[in-house]
Each structure stands twice: as C-alpha cells, then as structure tokens.
Amino acid sequence: MKNIYKFLIVFVLISNSSFANEAVNWLKMEVDFILNAYKNDNITTKEKFEHIEDTINKNFAGAGIAKFVAGQAWASADKDIKKEYIKLFKRHLALNIASMMQGYSDQEYSLTNSKFDETNNITLIDMEIKHDTNSILITWRVKKSKNKFYVIDLLVADISLVVTKRSEFNSALKKIDYNLEAFNEILQNQNKLSYTKIIQ
C-alpha cells in the first residue's frame, strides 16, 4: 500500500514537471518569435507589429482577460458591444505587450524557473530579462485548454498586468457609469494613440 502511495506521488510529480516543461518550450518559441520580429530589419515597423499582434492574439486568452478586466460593465452590456469591446481589447493588449517587449528586444533573457500550480491548474514560468546592470523578473501565468496553451496573466516585478488593467479600466468606466459602449470609444482612441507611438 505504501509503495502505491509512493508511486502515485512520483507519478504526479513527473507528470506535473513534464506539463511545465511543455509549457516552457512553447513559451520560449513564442517569445523568440516576438523578439526576432523586432530584430528583423527586412520588414517595416508596421509589419513587425502585425506579426507580433498575430502572435499575441493566438497565445493570450484575450477574450477571457477582456471580460475579467471589464468588471461590472460586462454584465450590463449588449452582445454586439461586448464583441466590439473584445476586438478593441485584444488590440489594446497586443499594443501593451508589444510596447513592453520592444524595450527588451536588445536584451538577453532566460526562462529561469517553472512550476505547475495544481490548485489553479496553471503553469507559472519565470523569465529573467538581463539589462546591463540589473535584471527584471517576469512571471507568465499559462493555462492549458483543448491541448493549447494560453497566457492568462503576466507579472512584471510582482505587478500583474491583468489586475493593473482591471483597476485602470474600472477607474475610467466609473466616470462613464460603467457604459461599455462609451468606453469602446475611449479604448479605440487610446489604441490609435498607442499604435502611432509603436510604429513611429
């Protein structure tokens, strides 16, 4: 009986470790793709961003994050407004990630640690970005669904992108009585501004 327990513990540990490794390999491939796009001098800045946006849209749980970030404004909005909001949010997310990664394009990085969080069924992957004199730690929260990995959050030096966005959106939404339709207009204008900055 004791041996069965031991076997089960070892089995769980091995399967969790291989699950985390699989996620690490996947993440490395996607991060390299984004950073390589920045280093590619044969394409225009606009094309670089399009590649990056496509990668981010494929690999982030954009719609799920959009819903979470909208908070109480989500429940009261119409279907079409929600659809438009998700579309705008996905671009907003891509612009945020792309802008951050742009700064890291000439830095070295390494995936230093990974672990599987059984309680929440997610994999946490630590990435260290090395600057000349210091380094910054980014933790990726990755969830698997239907044999595909999705990034559900990103923590930069203990600061969660999703929680920060929720707080930021809540502050803006509060001023317009949590009207998602009016918020879409604000989001669209911000996206235009961010896009201009990123491709200049």
Binding site: H92, L95, N96, S99, M100, Q102, G103, Y104, I136, V156, A157, D158, I159, S160, V163, T164, K165, S167, E168, F169, N170, S171, A172, I186, L187, Q190, L193, S194, K197, I198
Partner: peptide, 24 residues
C-alpha cells in the same frame, strides 16, 4: 522601458500607477 510602456498605453495612467504601487 516599463514606465514608458505603461505611460504610452494606459487609458488612465494615474490609476495604472496607483494599482502598480499597491501591488508592488
């Protein structure tokens, strides 16, 4: 890089910094 990314892409930069401060 982190501050610039936050500043350039925030709808409400003040609220974003406030939240970041509390989390940190």
């Amino acid at each position: 890089d982190e501050v610039n990314a936050l500043r350039d892409n925030s709808i409400d930069y003040y609220a974003a910094v406030r939240s970041s401060y509390y989390q940190n």
